[in-house]
């Protein structure tokens, strides 16, 4: 270092260059005065709460308040929408939902549609989970290989996730309905029309398929991220160790992908229980009640039936909410267990 060299001055503030920089600086400067005023008014200690307040307010109005109102509706009766004019009925709605001669046969229940919805939701969620996790895993494994046009295929599989559920359901409705594309193709090939959305088993199968098609890309993405986080040299070490490909999958890939797989499993489970829009647009819950889900039952009980039974719908919502809460806790527990193990 030469002593004749002038020490460089540390700039007090990063100077904003150019017109864009000056505009941004001026815009940010607009907040200086009100913020200074707020800080004087509240004191420095209260400022974090001032910053949190807008979000808490929105969260309260749109999440906590509805939950509280829902509770009120669940324990009050009548058709009046004003809580003050609804008589208190206690656990009557819950008793009505649970009034069954046999829980295995929805027809013996007072609220048979609720129990059909529960059964359909369980069937839907179970098969959808198997199909979703299986196909997302296979897709992720394929997309993780060095295949031609990998980027293109990744986009193709993710694309349905970007579509609105209603759009997805409408597209498939046009394909699957009596005079839809698929039947046109069947007839052209010399076959007979199949009533995909009218036969109960077909309708449920297609509801599951459409749901898998629409959401698989999202779960594929999670699994793909997990696969890419596995260091390549571990596979090279396995190759040097003379490991057969099936053993590489079961002993290395699957265990190392497990944390991501747990996330996917639980998310699929939670979203399966919440299913409504796609199936509702595709089949309307039909034929009959073959694809009626719990959420659709709640919606119809509260808003679509001639008699709007807010109380019963509220009680069903609370039961559904409790189930989702339990599933979320399960996910948290599994995720924590895994991260603890990873740190060990």
């Amino acid at each position: 270092m030469s002593s004749t060299q002038a020490p460089t001055q540390a700039a007090p503030k990063p100077a904003r260059e150019g017109l864009g920089g000056r505009v941004v600086a001026a815009a940010l400067g607009l907040f200086d005065a009100p913020m200074a005023w707020l800080q004087r008014a509240l004191g420095l200690g209260a400022m974090p709460y001032a910053f949190l307040a807008p979000n808490v307010l929105f969260f309260g109005v749109f999440v906590f308040l509805p939950i509280a109102i829902n509770l009120v509706y669940a324990v009050t009766g009548g058709v009046n929408i004003y809580p003050s004019q609804r008589p208190f009925v206690g656990a009557d709605h819950f008793r009505a939902l649970g009034d069954c001669a046999s829980f295995l046969d929805p027809a013996t229940c007072r609220e048979d549609h609720f129990w059909r919805g529960v059964r359909n939701t369980l069937v839907f969620t179970f098969f959808q989970m198997i199909a979703m996790v299986g196909s997302a895993l296979v897709t992720a494994l394929v997309l993780n290989r060095r295949i031609v046009a990998r980027g293109f295929f990744r986009a193709v599989f993710f694309f349905p996730v970007l579509l609105s559920p209603v759009v997805v359901a409408l597209i498939w409705k046009w394909i699957l309905q009596r005079d839809g594309l698929l039947n046109a193709a069947l007839v052209a090939a010399g076959g007979e029309k199949i009533l995909f959305l009218v036969e109960p088993t077909w309708a449920m199968a297609w509801a599951i398929f459409v749901s898998v098609w629409a959401h698989m890309g999202f779960y594929t993405l999670i699994l793909l991220a997990g696969l890419q986080a596995i260091p390549a040299d571990i596979y090279e070490a396995a190759e040097m160790d003379g490991t057969p490909p099936t053993r590489v999958f079961w002993r290395l890939t699957l265990p190392l992908l497990w944390p991501n797989l747990v996330v996917v499993l639980v998310l699929v489970l939670i979203r399966g229980v919440q299913t409504f829009d796609e199936v509702f647009v595709l089949t309307g819950g039909g034929p009959g009640t073959a694809t009626l889900m719990v959420v659709q039952y709640i919606y119809e009980t509260a808003f679509a039936n001639p008699v709007q039974n807010f109380g019963l719908a509220g009680a069903a919502s609370i039961l559904l909410g409790a189930l989702l809460f339990a599933l979320t806790m399960l996910q948290l527990a599994l995720a924590r267990g895994k991260s603890k193990e990873a740190r060990a």
Partner: peptide
């Protein structure tokens, strides 16, 4: 021949141990 057929062993810079 593939790496697995050559009967060699390698110690990697990153060690490449199986973490689980």
């Amino acid at each position: 021949e593939r790496a697995s057929e050559r009967g060699l062993a390698m110690v990697f810079q990153s060690y490449a141990l199986y973490p689980h």
